[in-house]
Design a protein around this nucleic acid. Structure first.
Length: 249
DNA sequence: GCGACAG
DNA sequence: ATCTTGTCGC
């Protein structure tokens, strides 16, 4: 029961933890009768160096910026935004992304005043080598329905996706369908949709499509992405966010 | 052993 | 993820 909240920063232990979490993921629809609030989750990084110059090396100290945008469905109006920053402690390791980004996301989530019915996370759900991508890990931790919306492939193979908005193709890994590759918009790279937790693949794809407008990313993720990757400049960021978590550094 | 590899 | 200018196309 409490293993869902176990934590580590050691790569080897993290992999063991993922293997223990995998069988606890619910892949069937287990969400509210009515989904009225959808949260978009994304993370960005900003160099901590006073002398941010020429080349940025990913290993240099930085701040992890987690953003959560809550939208009302079906109006897709933003009802709340939270931005939280804290020192980055773990490096990016393919397959262990959640161990690098979850801490900041959880802090941001704790600042929310609204209770979203569904989470759309920038990254993979079960379309992961051990079936526990960041969307899944977050869903398990919060025991909340979640969907993974990735911009590129982590694992699995798939056919070419027709260049027609809404077209989908299965994403197969080790013989199982772990997600679907969707053309969210013509002329752009497709999205990698996968179940996070407490949702079926069909329903996950339905929600992503329901949140698409004229852009590549579904609104929840697009709005969160805007704030997460926006360059900081004289505190403008903090003023634009409706409410924010208090900083540490 | 070699290549692949979310953000 | 992050840096970075112009440029091609609807």
């Amino acid at each position: 029961m409490e293993q869902l909240h176990a934590w580590t920063e050691d790569p080897r232990t993290a992999i063991q933890l993922q293997k223990a979490l995998a069988p606890r993921v619910i892949r069937e629809d287990c969400l509210p009768t009515s989904v009225d609030l959808i949260a978009g989750v994304d993370v960005g990084f900003e160099p901590l160096d006073p002398k941010r110059n020429v080349r940025v090396d990913p290993a240099a100290p930085s701040l992890t910026r987690a953003v959560i945008v809550v939208m009302e469905y079906p109006s897709l109006r933003v009802v709340e935004q939270v931005l939280h920053r804290q020192p980055t402690t773990m490096p990016y390791i393919p397959g262990l992304l959640s161990f690098r980004e979850l801490p900041a996301i959880l802090e941001a989530y704790a600042c929310l005043e609204h209770r979203p019915d569904l989470l759309m996370v920038d990254g993979m759900g079960i379309a992961h080598p051990r079936r526990v991508g960041i969307a899944t890990h977050l869903g398990l931790w919060l025991d909340k329905p979640s969907i993974g919306v990735g911009k590129s492939r982590l694992c699995g193979r798939h056919a070419e996706v027709p260049d027609v908005k809404g077209a989908m193709v299965p994403l197969i890994d080790k013989g199982e369908e772990v997600g679907r590759v969707m053309r969210s918009r013509e002329g752009v790279k497709p999205l990698y949709i996968s179940q996070g937790h407490r949702i079926s693949l069909e329903t996950a794809c339905d929600w992503v499509r329901a949140c698409l407008t004229r852009y590549k990313l579904p609104e929840p993720t697009r709005q969160a992405d805007r704030l997460a990757s926006r360059r900081t400049r004289e505190g403008v960021l903090m003023r634009e966010a409706r409410s924010t978590g208090q900083d540490q550094a």
